[in-house]
């Protein structure tokens, strides 16, 4: 991170920047957009820098906390029904 005291504390385009950084994290931005934003903007703009890290943290937390595995007996039951279907 760059020296925080040299960073802007207001971003005039915060809403657009947020959409752009979400698109970047979603892998939906162009290479140019990504390079420009990550190299030119992020290190000099505090609100966007914070937003970026917040977005990343939320995604990590979602992946860590919001997934679950199918119960084994359910998997077995589905497989069994398909096998029966195949034999039928």
């Amino acid at each position: 991170m760059n020296d925080p005291s040299k960073m802007k504390h207001d971003c005039p385009n915060q809403k657009d920047c947020l959409q752009l950084l979400q698109a970047i994290l979603d892998g939906e931005a162009t290479k140019e957009q990504k390079e420009h934003f990550m190299k030119e903007h992020l290190d000099s703009c505090m609100p966007c820098y914070q937003n970026y890290h917040l977005e990343v943290a939320i995604r990590d937390l979602l992946k860590k906390k919001c997934t679950r595995e199918a119960p084994q007996e359910l998997i077995d039951s589905i497989k069994k029904q398909i096998e029966q279907n195949l034999r039928a």
Binding site: N51, H53, L54, A57, K65, C66
Partner: peptide
């Protein structure tokens, strides 16, 4: 809505908050 949420408070959400 524009977030007043911080990364630090997220790291304290170790339970089912996000879910």
């Amino acid at each position: 809505i524009t977030p007043d949420l911080r990364v630090e408070s997220l790291s304290n959400m170790i339970g089912d908050e996000i879910s």
